[in-house]
Structure formats: C-alpha cells, structure tokens
Computed example of a mutant assay.
Amino acid sequence: MTEDPASRTPTARDRRRWAQYLVNERAEAEVYRQLAERRTGEEREILLALAAAEGRHEAHWLALLDGEQARLPRASFRTVLLGWMAKRFGAIFVLALAQNAEDRSPYDDDPHATPAMAADEKIHREVVRGLAARGRRRLSGTFRAAVFGANDGLVSNLALVMGIGATGVAPQFVLFSGIAGLLAGALSMGAGEFVSVRSQRELLEATEPNNDSDAFLPDLDLNANELALVYRTRGVDADEAMRRAHQAVAAAQAADRSLPYRRPREAKDGHEVVGSALSAATSSFLFFASGAVIPVLPWLFGLSGLTAVVLALVLVGIALLGTGAMVGLLSGGPPLKRGLRQLVIGFSAAAVTYLLGLLFNVTLGG
C-alpha cells in the first residue's frame, strides 16, 4: 500500500515549503488590499474578498507550522514585484501579472494543500481574469492606438534610415530622410485616424432612429399599426415588439400628445467607444512621432556610419522589447515572448531595407 504523503511526519523540506507558501499568501493578500484601496464599489469588494481568501490559506499553513515562526523566508520575487507595482502603478498592470501567477498554482500537486485550496486558486484565476478584462476594456482603444502608432513609427523609420544609410549617402541626408519620414508618417497616421473615426461616427449617426414620426402616434390604430415593425428592426422579437407598440400608442392616445421614442442605448454607447475624431488623430500623430524619432536620434546628435547604425538598432530594440512586453503583460501573455516577437518583426523589416540599400549602393557605385 502506498503511503499518503500528507500523513507522514513532515520533513524539514516540507516545513520550508510551507513557510514559503505562508509568506507568499500574506504578500498576495497585501497586494489585493493595496489594489482595493485604489478602487471603489464592486471592484473594491471583490479585491477585499480575494485578500480574505488568501488569509484562509495563510491560516492553513500556520496551523501546519504550529504557529508563527521566528524566521521566515522572503516572499517570491514575483509576489514582491506585484506588491511594488500595486503601490505605484494602475491596477490593470498588477492584475495582468496576477492572472499569470494564478495560472501556476503549486497547490494542484502538493498533498498538504487541501482540495478546497486548490479549487480556490482556480476560482481566483477566473476572478482576477475578470477584473483584468474590465481594465483592458477601459484601456483597449487608447492602448491599441498607442501600441500601433509607436510600433509603426519605430519600424517604418528604422527601416527607412537603415535603407537610406546603406546606400552610402551623407549623414545629413540620412537625418533629413528620417525627419521627413517621421513627419510624413505621423501626418498620415493622424489624417487616417481622423477620417476613420469621423466616418465611423457619421455611419453611426446615419443608423440612429429619429423622432420624426412621434407626433403621429396618437393617430395610429391601436390594434392595427406598423409601429411594432419599427421595434423589430431594432432587434426586438415579434411578441415584445407588439407589446411595446401597443403600450406606446395607448399611452400617446391617453395623453393626447406624442410619446418620444427612446433611442437605443447601443447607438449612444457606440459613439462613446468610437470617441472623438480630433482626439484620435492627435493621439495617433503623437504616438507615431514618439516611435519614429528614436531611430533618428544618433544622426540628430551628430553620429554617423556604423556607430549611428548600431546605436539606432540598440535604441529601437529596447523600445520594441518594451512595447512588446507591455502588450504581453496587458493581454495576459508572456511579456518576454511578446517582446521578442516585436523585436524580430522590426529588425526583419529593417534588414530587408538595409540589404536593398546595400544593393543600390553597389549598383550605383558600379
């Protein structure tokens, strides 16, 4: 018969593991409490409930350790990092990291953790995922514009200066080309975003219902009219549409005045999601320019040749890793993997234009 690991006498290694669990649970509970201090309403209550659940887990390990220990290990680096970020950054970043952490619960395979604790961790993962999703939805529009604009500026202008520089032209020409690329790209991004958002708002306005027919409601036949069809075009099922139509006509006839239609909430929400065309254009311009200026910096400060190329690659590489890691962090994916993906894509584009520049240099030189 196989011995149950949970029933045997605990070893020193077991006790060290329990102590590590204990400090990690305490640190995670503190993270949730710190986040709760910066939130209100329902989100605050949820975060405090998560902290209380971590407290139950803490009590379990304390009981196994026979009470508070004189010496305890440090919390894991991940938990310490979460605590540091909870004090200084927005909840979305911390929750995204916490979501990844909850995915790797050690309690699934530990015989000294109760099944309830393992189940708690699975539920915690979904709760944190839900809280993080709220933050991502609030951030999605601005974040997409920021990442897309900055990366477009980084990659396109790096490719431009690499290609121009490889042709062997003077450093001043590389600098001019980079600045021209920055302005052209930023203006194009801003104009494109303005037209896109403005067109989307106009499309939404064209699909909104109007109140032109409200004044005629009292004249409709209560039992035979087409008002129900209006509601059906708005996605209401036939029975509910007939009920609303009958109610609207009856109320209008009783009051002998028009009963204004209620504009569908989706249309109003649509405008809020799309946002301002001018704001979107300005953001796109600035985000693109902020990325596009980085590859030009070495030439802007008077460098040239291989030194300028290497420095531009280093600066852009750091920026690409940073933006890629940010995408991974906020999307719940591995930050390093996302950062390396951005780096490979950006450097691949630059390599193609650099090789083309070398080809043109050899051709023209010949």
Rank of each mutant, 00 (worst) to 15 (best):
L182N: 01
T323P: 05
A252S: 08
L355V: 12
A53D: 10
G181Y: 00
G305S: 03
L355A: 10
L329K: 02
F216A: 14
F194L: 06
V127W: 09
V352F: 08
L311R: 04
T79F: 09
Q69K: 03
D108V: 14
A267S: 12
G346L: 01
L183M: 02
T363D: 06
L297T: 01
V174Q: 02
A6H: 15
Q342S: 13
D4N: 11
P115I: 02
A51R: 06
L204A: 08
D14K: 05
A191S: 00
R71N: 06
V274M: 07
L35H: 09
D120T: 08
R134A: 13
E42C: 11
R16V: 05
A49D: 12
D66R: 08
L95H: 03
S290P: 03
S284K: 01
A29R: 04
M189R: 00
G153H: 03
A145M: 10
R13I: 14
T363H: 12
G149E: 01
R33E: 06
T79E: 07
A206P: 08
A325K: 14
T363E: 07
T40A: 12
A96T: 13
A116K: 15
G324N: 02
G324A: 12
E54R: 01
V293I: 08
V274S: 02
I46R: 04
R134I: 15
P115Y: 08
Q342D: 15
Y261I: 10
E42P: 14
G317V: 08
A277Y: 11
L50V: 05
G328S: 05
T353W: 10
V314H: 08
D239E: 06
L355I: 07
P111Y: 05
V309Y: 04
A70P: 06
L139S: 11
G346I: 01
A91E: 03
A292D: 04
R8P: 11
L160D: 00
L158K: 00
A53G: 05
F89R: 15
L306D: 11
T353I: 12
W299T: 01
T207K: 09
M85C: 14
R129V: 07
L35S: 11
N223K: 13
V31W: 01
L340F: 06
G302D: 05
A27D: 15
D66F: 15
D214Y: 01
V80F: 14
N361C: 03
I179E: 00
D4V: 09
S290W: 03
L364A: 11
E266A: 10
A206W: 14
R341K: 08
A245W: 00
V147D: 00
A319T: 04
